[in-house]
Design a protein around this nucleic acid. Structure first.
Lengths: 252, 252
DNA sequence: CGCATAATTGACGGTTTTCAAGCACTGTGG
DNA sequence: CCACAGTGCTTGAAAACCGTCAATTATGCG
């Protein structure tokens, strides 16, 4: 469990640079890890040609990893930086589906559909691991184990979405935003990144779009929460002062 | 593809009895079909002991198929009738997660979690097919194919939920209800059940809870749509008069 | 420095919720 | 068969909430 795998690079977690390109999650904190483990990819003797199946690469802010309706090629894991996925429905308004942070996966929902249902864009400079699915058979690993890992991933995605749908729809603007902040915080904490003070890498408009609120409402609620003392807010930087208050609000 | 499988019983689709226990979907219209196909379950020579792995049974109105936090045992496919799944969050309000109609699956979201995240209850008399997952290995079928089928199912679930989230959150009460009606209609049509005139087997409160609306709002919107001539509504029975109007409203 | 974009703040109006009352339907028991 | 209670459905009025429009300020980029 301690052996080095594809990338073990890990820099300091300076609060000022959190979510910056220089901070990468450990492989063991990565959502692709279950699959990586099966592949035993970083083992020297694994025999899997490096760079073919799993490839790490930097991405620039604004770069698009894949577009909606592109044929499904790969799963991506965020090594550093942050991303957003969005969909457009029939040439109408663009809708933000989700945000992805270090250790999380992008493209899972395309796996059984053959093409990506959404577009994935980098919110800042960062890096991703790309798992080239079509080449999986070349790995010589038992398909069963790989499939089991995929089922695990999909299951988590389903559970997360159920939670999301059942909460978003029933909550007020304030509850949604509290929940959103707590969700970001706990996801960062889960990967051992600073979780009490971090940067919103997405715009207010993106947040509002994701939560089903107008950007003005997001702005208003955030300043209100700042005045109440639950958070400290400065531009895109947030510090959680009273996590208890947030939790109480979100669970309303 | 035409050979009889587990149950081929199929009665007439009298509008008066639609969604009644007497109407069962064909196996080929059932969500478990991909798995069933792999198992080749109904083949006499399949060697799979009947009634152990896959079991069909009637359920009564109000009966609970499984409860939230029960350990995961089985997948269920609705053969006839209709069901609702709901969750309670920390002893607070109960939230309706979804409704299931003939041919659809119940319990998918528990598959990779080990326990059911919600409670499933029959809205009327009906019947289900139960696929006992723990006994799958006994079937002697290649695990690969079964897993592939499961991945397929999970993927559909993810896609459906993405669609749901991104639409519900952004839509007005009227749009949500139009979408809800159209969704029911198309799901019934997909299984070759009458789709222009059918019965709401769930209460207004359940609909509202599912869509994130007060039951009064559901009631008001429905009567407004009745007055506008898009639908004809009588008690729990609905007839779609102007499908175009509904689609236009839902997509707004 | 100046433009373009994003964020904030205020005022207003529409939609939805809440509270409350009356009605319709269901099923039970006399 | 009818009366009754219980539940769910409908409808109304007032208030809360949020979205839209608009103006101002801040920020990032050339």
């Amino acid at each position: 469990m301690d052996k080095p795998r594809f990338s073990t690079h890990r820099s300091q977690c300076d609060p000022q640079t959190i979510l910056d390109a220089s901070t990468e999650v450990d492989c063991e904190d990565c959502g692709l890890d279950p699959i990586c483990m099966v592949l035993d990819y970083a083992e020297e003797a694994s025999g899997v040609p490096e760079g073919v199946l799993l490839r790490r690469r930097p991405v620039e802010r604004g770069e698009i990893i894949f577009r909606q309706d592109d044929p499904f090629r790969s799963l991506f894991a965020v090594k550093s930086g942050s991303f957003k996925t969005s969909m457009e429905n029939g040439g109408q308004s663009k809708r933000v589906i989700g945000f992805q942070f270090p250790g999380e996966l992008i493209g899972v929902e395309a796996m059984s559909r053959g093409k990506y249902p959404c577009t994935a864009r980098a919110l800042q400079n960062g890096s991703v691991c790309e798992l080239h699915i079509a080449r999986l058979p070349e790995s010589g690993r038992p398909l069963e184990a790989l499939q089991a890992a995929v089922i695990e991933l999909l299951g988590k995605e389903v559970a997360f979405n159920h939670q999301l749908v059942s909460s978003l729809v029933h909550q007020s603007a304030e509850q949604r935003i509290c929940g959103f902040i707590l969700s970001l915080s706990s996801r960062l904490a889960h990967r051992r990144l600073p979780s009490l003070e971090f940067t919103f890498t997405m715009s207010r408009t993106d947040i509002g779009n994701y939560l089903g609120l107008a950007s003005e409402t997001v702005s208003r609620v955030l300043t209100r929460m700042g005045r109440s003392g639950a958070i400290h807010l400065q531009r895109k930087r947030i510090r959680i002062l009273d996590r208890n208050a947030l939790e109480q609000c979100a669970d309303g």
